Amino acid sequence: MSHRTASTAKGMLGAVMGLILIGVIAVGGVIGYRQFVADDGEGSDSSAPVSSVSDRPYPTGPAAPNAAPTVPPPPSSAPPSTSASPSPTAAETGPGSGTRVPELQAAAEQATAGKPQASLVALNIHTGEIVATVNDTGMSGVIAPGSTFKIVSSALLLKKGVVTPDTKVPCPKTAVAGQAFHNVDNFEIPDATFRQDFARSCNTAFVELRSKIGDSELATFSTDYFGLNSNAWQVGEGGTTDGTVPAAADDADKAAQMIGQGSLKMNPMTMASVVATAVTGQFHQPVLVRGGETYKNTKPLPKNVVSGIKDMMRACATSGTAASTFRGMPGVGAKTGTAEVGNGTNGWMVAYRGDIAVAVVVIGGESGSGSAGPIVRSFLSAVPA
C-alpha cells in the first residue's frame, strides 16, 4: 500500500472515531441532565417510583419548613398510660377545689329522688372529703341519731375492755334506768353475744351496760376520738353543725345516750364521719373544699376497737337489722337506727363500702331499714366493694 493510500485510510478512521466520541458525549449529557433534574424534585419521570417519608423507617434529614411538627415519643422512664380518660388537673384537686364526685353525687340524687324528707351525706373514709350531699339537713341538722350512735358507745365499751364482740351480754325485754326502755316489738335474746346485741339493735343490753361508764365519759370519748363537741369544724357552704354529746344529766339521760337518744344532737354529716373514724381508726374532719384548716385534735382508736366495730357492722349487714337491705351486696358494713322524736320517729341508716361511708336520715321514717335502707343500698350500688 502506498503512503498516500495509508494516509487516506487513517483520515477516514479518525473522522469515524470523532463522530462516535461526539455521540457518546451527547448521550451522556442527556442522561446526566435527566438524573440531575430528578434528584432536584422537579420534572421527574412519571414512570419512576416516587419515594415518600412514610416509606422510610426514620427521617434522614430535617423536615421541610412547612411540614407538620412531629410529637417525640415519651422517654423510656415515663409510666405507661392506664386510662383513656384525662387525669384530674391540679386546679381540680388542689387547694380551693371542691370535693364532690360527679358520679357519686348523681347516684345520691337518684337514690333520694321523690323523697324530700331524706338527707344524705357520703364521704371518703380516709380523707374526710365529702363526695355527695343531698338536702341541707344532712349537714346542719341537730337531731337524735338513734341506734346508729351505738357505734360510738360500743367503741367506748370495747376500748375499756368491758366487752368484746363475743362477750355474753343478755338482751332482756325491758331495762329500767329512771324509766323503762324496750326493744322493737319487745323482742329478747337471753343468751346474746355483744355482736348480736349490736347487729339486732338491742336497746336493753346497751342500757344495762351504762353502769360501766361515768356520766361524762361518753362525752369525753366522743371528743377525744371522734372529733365531736369541738364546735371547730369549718366545713363551709352556708354553715354546718358539729355533733354534740354533752355529759349525761342523770342516769336516765346516760341510758338514753347509750342508744342514741336523750340530749345527743347529730346529722348525717357527723354520723358519716363517725363511721369513717370507727372503721379506719382515725378522725378526719369532713371537708367540702380542699386546702382549708381542719380540726385535728383527736387520738387514734386502738386496733381492737376498729376490728370489733367492723366485725359488728358486717354482722348487722349480713344477719342483723340491715340484712334484708343488703342481701346479695358484698362488702358492706352497716347500722340501723330509729330515733323517737316527740310523737313520731326518724329512720336512720349508716354504712360503708370500699372507701366510702354514707349516712341517711328520713324525717318521719318509721324505721331505719324500711325508710333509709333502700336509699343507702341504691347509693352504695355505685360504690365498688
Rank of each mutant, 00 (worst) to 15 (best):
A91V: 09
S222F: 03
W233M: 09
K296C: 04
R100T: 14
N66L: 13
E92I: 01
A247F: 01
V383E: 10
G342P: 01
K10W: 06
N267G: 11
V332R: 02
T99K: 05
S97I: 00
T60E: 10
V169R: 04
I309S: 03
S44A: 15
G11D: 07
R353A: 05
V350I: 15
T298E: 04
T321Y: 08
L158S: 01
E217S: 03
V121C: 08
P190D: 09
P73Q: 11
A106K: 14
A78M: 12
R4S: 12
A90M: 09
S371R: 02
G320H: 05
P65A: 15
G320E: 07
A63H: 09
E237Q: 15
A144F: 00
A249I: 06
V24W: 10
G364I: 05
F187M: 13
S83P: 06
F221D: 02
V306F: 10
G320A: 09
E293P: 06
T174G: 03
L380V: 11
A6I: 13
T193G: 12
S273F: 00
D136K: 14
F283H: 14
S273Y: 01
M266H: 07
D197G: 15
V184N: 13
M313Q: 04
V207D: 00
S2P: 00
A26K: 00
D253H: 04
P75L: 10
